[in-house]
Design a protein around this nucleic acid. Structure first.
Lengths: 336, 336
DNA sequence: ATGAAAGCGCTAACAT
DNA sequence: ATGTTAGCGCTTTCAT
């Protein structure tokens, strides 16, 4: 555990062989005799030799490090993606460096610069909402660092990606609301320059259309993703006497805000209004009433992301992995 | 943003000076003339020079990287400590590498090995519950890597630490419950080999004693920190007809489990029973009834941890920074 | 104020 | 199967 003190030169000297032989033995180079390999490995083990990764990375140009950039690590979805990625990468000798952008474009650029600087072999990124310009990603593409986008992706860049079928998740939720008898459904959405939110909005609209329910732009609140914004949007609906019979929110947090507003104004869920969120955050399960939401399969997504990197090989084609969401129905939308 | 291509040698050649001069200019070595310094910096800027951190770390023996090891990154408390630490370190040019142990002793050892391998300059660690033997920490102490423990600390090792006054947090909560008229208070605690849980249990016992309430060991459930365990412990109390008038839990999650059990069995909170948790997880605010809890000041703790590292200097004495908790009183304990 | 040279620890072409 | 040598890009004595 000591800060690595002994080097391959020390081993070489003790064993009266050359450093390169030691290096090769340690790296299981087939051109080294079994006996030498054993001798070296045993000696290394006994003397607590640990390779200097810095030196090896400098020389090899690869670092066995992977960076992951997410909007926030304390979101259930992201922390579970990260957990899964970390587990798989550790098994294969890679280390994961986690960065958060806090939805800030500048911080995203800074994080990427840092990772490039650390000579990571790959970067897994989920774009921040503040990111409207993708030049930094395009530059990154040229750098030779393996790139995988996930969840908040851009499909046009030709970069391998893993994403949820957000359209399906959204469509199914709205269809469920309609099945419960809701007709006047308001959408709390996110900025549509983010593909996920665009698709969720589209799923909402198409589900309504398919059921011959008139859609209306003033039923769509974009940029309503936080608890505070959801709360205020709901209060606004109440105070302008436009209470709908359902809210479909693209975020559990803004759905929560709506729930809190309803509690405050004594509007009963699901009797007076149905509310559905998105992401299946843990709290959706234990608030009262339980909040209907869509599970985004974070572990599966993490697995796919890691595998996309590990199995890439020389395949040059863009790979898009689309994950099927699961609608978790709870009391907040159960009228029947 | 390109993977750094140009080196100080390229700059030196272009400017017809030596690499060492370039290095010095870039590092603001005072022995370089202002004009050369400017020339070098401008050229570097214009040509997107980025230093190779690997090479510089290898040479200097310091990496400008810091590792942080926590039980889980998706705990509100830890993710906020991490966020604060990251922010402060980034300002000073350091990068943070985040590892999680998932409360597993082996994973903790593995994480530390990894960080040592990466030649981090410092490790900030919060011990996992699975850690009962501290040999790996003692070894780490010898390594010369700057160490700071936080939250889940061991005070006997002489390592700088930042921790909550868990005794005070616990004592104040129980005193509050007593003030509300509760006399039969059950404690859901954690393993007492972890100092925090030991102190919380002590705070519980001493608050009772101070109020001349008889304490009893069978009112203490240790190893009851998760939602599931809290749920089962509460169900057990109900089914054995030993429903207390209050639960003080050392974890918000086990308090939540108790809340869920009460809901299921139609026991009213706070009318029939008061419940208080610990950590002030976000959900405590918006479940019904709101759950009384103790804020652990994660941002402040993160700040102290980072500062302990940045300001250490040559001071050899152990520094213990004890943070005052704040009791957040919500409906779950408001009988009066 | 600047340059030359050595070396951090490792790997890999090129020998033998 | 093993050794020699030359760096990866940077910092830092030691010169001048």
């Amino acid at each position: 555990m000591m800060r690595s003190k002994i080097t391959i030169h020390d081993i070489a000297r003790s064993l009266k062989i050359s450093p390169s032989t030691v290096s090769r033995a340690l790296n299981d180079n087939p051109r080294i005799s079994e006996s030498t390999r054993q001798k070296v490995k045993v000696f290394a083990q006994e003397n607590d030799y640990t390779p200097n990764i810095l030196a090896s990375s400098l020389r090899k140009g690869r670092s066995l490090k992977v960076g992951i950039v997410v909007p926030r690590i304390n979101r259930h979805f992201f922390s579970n993606v990260i957990g899964e990625v970390e587990e798989i990468l550790n098994e294969t000798g890679y280390n994961l460096i986690i960065c958060q952008t806090l939805e800030d474009y500048k911080k995203e650029i800074h994080n990427i610069k840092t990772l490039v600087n650390l000579h990571v072999d790959a970067i897994f990124i989920s774009l921040s909402t503040g990111t409207k310009n993708l030049d930094h990603i395009k530059e990154l593409q040229k750098s030779g660092i393996h790139l995988v986008m996930f969840d908040r992706v851009d499909e046009s860049l030709g970069i391998d990606l893993v994403k949820l079928d957000d359209f399906m998740g959204s469509f199914n939720t709205v269809q469920h609301l309609i099945n419960q008898g809701c007709r006047n459904i308001v959408h709390f959405g996110g900025p549509t320059h983010i593909l996920s939110y665009h698709e969720r909005q589209k799923g909402y609209s198409e589900a309504l259309e398919k059921n011959n329910i008139q859609t209306s732009l003033n039923k769509i609140n974009s940029d309503t993703l936080t608890k505070e914004k959801g709360y205020h949007a709901m209060i606004n609906l109440i105070e302008t006497n436009k209470i709908p019979d359902a809210i479909f929110s693209a975020s559990d947090y803004s759905a929560l805000g709506a729930v809190l507003a309803c509690r405050e104004r004594n509007i009963e869920i699901p009797k007076d209004i149905c509310i559905a969120g998105f992401a299946n955050e843990p709290f959706t399960e234990f608030i009262r009433p339980g909040l209907t939401s869509t599970d985004q399969k974070p572990e599966l997504m993490g697995k796919k992301v890691a595998e996309l990197f590990l199995n890439k090989g020389s395949n040059k084609d863009q790979i898009k992995s689309i994950i099927k969401p699961e609608l978790i129905i709870r009391e907040s939308t159960l009228k029947l």
